[in-house]
């Protein structure tokens, strides 16, 4: 088990290197720092001097991979690749193009993100399982068929409409909660209700539908017939036999997302004005702040890989048949 985890962690290194190379290629080879400077400065101010100035200020005035003018180890370290990409491995994210310290930003902004994402995630899974169980109880009836239709219809509504609709109805028409904003000191739950509600509601369609198929798949298994032959009631079969078995794919399917909860949600955070990492990324994209985007790509990849490892571990925990080796 321990050996397995260590091996997975080692395997993460080449992946992170790959991620890094890919982003580096995207950001520095496809578009040269000159291009970036030109678009950052805006058409009016593009002069060779201004570009050089911008590059020097932001640390892009070095060669990409090899610095011939430096000596010793510095030929490798005094390059854009080393200062901008390799240092990410030491969690040294540097400064954004607007000069702010990214590490500080990230560590303060991940908590509001988590405050929205964690309840949405947990409540969402719980609601989806409950809804799916209810539907499965009526399997084979017209209620089941209509429920599936409703799920598909819910899936077909753009996420944006859930947010816009939720803000319009709950906040504007009924005036139950503030439309947007976040205040960690003053009744933060008031600001959290609507975003959490919207994300749970928007997930029901696809979530409950998926869980329903998982439940039905288990309901067709041989052991269910055995339980029936024992004289167990349908309700007992559903809760004692089908549910524990179906929880394995459900659990292992969502565990991979848990670390990524820190990243928050782009849309929810920007619509509701929550100062989390999601809106941080969105602002970075809109202001074309590539230093932040690069750092967030790196953090996101680490969290995802961590999620994959967690998934494997959760398998052994949830399913007695699985032993890692």
């Amino acid at each position: 088990m321990l050996a397995y985890i260590i091996r997975r962690l080692l395997y993460a290194i080449p992946i992170l290197v790959g991620v890094n190379l890919l982003t580096f290629t995207l950001f520095f080879v496809v578009n040269s720092p000159d291009d970036m400077a030109a678009s950052q400065l805006g058409d009016k101010y593009v002069t060779p001097a201004a570009i050089e100035n911008w590059k020097r200020k932001n640390g892009y005035d070095k060669p990409l991979f090899l610095n011939d003018s430096a000596t010793g180890l510095a030929t490798l370290t005094d390059t854009i690749f080393f200062t901008k990409s390799v240092r990410l491995f030491a969690f040294d994210f540097g400064r954004s193009e607007s000069g702010r310290d990214i590490t500080t930003d990230v560590s303060t902004r991940m908590w509001p993100s988590l405050a929205v994402a964690l309840p949405s995630f947990a409540l969402g899974i719980w609601v989806n399982i409950c809804v799916a169980l209810m539907v499965v109880m009526f399997r084979g009836t017209s209620l089941d068929r209509w429920a599936v239709f409703v799920f598909v219809a819910l899936m077909s509504i753009s996420y944006l409409f859930y947010i816009i609709g939720g803000q319009y109805l709950v906040a504007k028409q009924w005036m139950l909660v503030p439309i947007s904003g976040f205040d960690p000191d003053f009744k933060p739950w008031k600001f959290l209700i609507l975003p959490v509600l919207v994300s749970v509601l928007s997930g029901i369609g696809s979530g409950a539908r998926w869980y329903r198929t998982l439940f039905l798949e288990e309901a067709g298994q041989d052991y269910v017939r055995t339980a029936r032959a024992k004289g167990a009631s349908e309700l007992r079969i559903l809760f004692r036999h089908i549910l524990p078995n179906a929880l394995i794919p459900i659990l292992t399917g969502v565990v991979v997302l848990i670390p990524s909860l820190f990243m928050g949600s782009l849309l929810i955070e920007s619509f509701f004005g929550i100062p989390g990492l999601g809106s941080y990324m969105l602002d970075a994209i809109r202001s074309q702040d590539f230093a932040i985007v690069r750092s967030m790509v790196f953090i996101g990849s680490i969290l995802y890989i961590f999620g994959l490892i967690l998934t494997d571990i959760s398998y052994t925990w949830a399913d007695p048949r699985v032993r890692l080796s």
């Binding site: 041989d222 052991y223 055995t226 167990a232 036999h241 007695p320 048949r321």
Partner: peptide, 18 residues
Amino acid sequence: GRRVAMIFQNAMSALNPV
């Protein structure tokens, strides 16, 4: 299960794995 009991073909799949 009380009056009439059954055993099935493939015991591996007929038993609840978890």
